[in-house]
Design a protein around this nucleic acid. Structure first.
Lengths: 151, 151
DNA sequence: ATTGGTGCAAAGGATTTGCAGTCTA
DNA sequence: TAGACTGCAAATCCTTTGCACCAAT
């Protein structure tokens, strides 16, 4: 999580009003507030979870709010670039958006498509490999792929 | 790598003739030999490398061989299920096929789309997380995401 | 000849782009 | 009002499916 957001979140926990909190989160991340963005942020950032774009759209529709598919994609992509959510790439068919932006890893159930968090303390990576010349680490993803055990 | 293939590969190193070697690899994996499969196998298994489906198709075309895009996808998927190659999922836009099926991890350059292998000895994972009930580990992917360092 | 498998054209589906509309300063 | 930004329809592009064909028994 970017330090500025980290501070933001803790500061905001004392505020009242969910929408006001969301507004400040977006503004703090340099994202202009619009009706659609507020809606999508309230869906995604509401709690720690992993949602696909499709799922986010479904939630929006369920709330009888009008948002186009493209806006969902564009907005989630924006949130990701701004550090409000983290993209999790485990399946070529769909990108997941993780509202937990602290460092952690994932367990992916290939049978039912479920993502589960793994705390950093549950396991660690020892050492970093030699990087290609002229590059710097942007992130490390660890994905434990599991399958439902046969009966 | 599945043991049966491991044995196969070492046995085959004494054979002469690239095509014959490929034929035996495919048959050993339970894959029937066809013109297209032999071509695609010769492209992909020729040496340790990471290729996207698009790249494999480009190589096939360069060799003036006729293969459809769908056949490339279907065949690479088949090879993956049979353990001849390993799918590497690092970018929602394209799946990479890795001819190195021994346990190892990857460095992915998000700027130029380059994949690099990391030997298991270069770094290790300590401990395994608690798995969701009723599941078993199918594999562990580690991806070090790097970017070209700004000038 | 039958049957299971194979290969490709067309379909499917997630994601991105181009432009008209909207909001801010 | 100027200026930039936003949001959506349509386009794009990777991947899968459905069906005609082929190979082995």
């Amino acid at each position: 999580m970017r330090p500025i957001l980290m501070r933001m979140v803790s500061k905001l926990t004392t505020d009242t009003g969910a929408e006001q909190r969301i507004r400040q989160l977006l503004e703090g991340a340099g994202v202009r507030c619009t009706r659609q963005r507020l809606l999508l942020a309230s869906i995604v950032l509401h709690r720690k979870q992993h949602l696909s774009a499709e799922q986010v759209l479904a939630f929006a529709n369920r709330a009888r709010q009008v948002v186009s598919k493209a806006t969902v994609y564009n907005t989630l992509g924006l949130f990701a670039r701004m550090g409000l959510v983290r993209e999790v790439i485990v399946d070529p068919q769909r990108t997941f958006y993780d509202s937990n932006v602290t460092e952690h890893h994932h367990i992916y159930n290939e049978d039912d498509g479920t993502l589960t968090d793994v705390g950093q303390d549950e396991f660690r990576i020892e050492g970093l490999p030699t990087l290609p010349p002229g590059t710097e680490v942007h992130g490390v993803d660890v994905i434990v792929r599991v399958r439902t055990r046969p009966a």
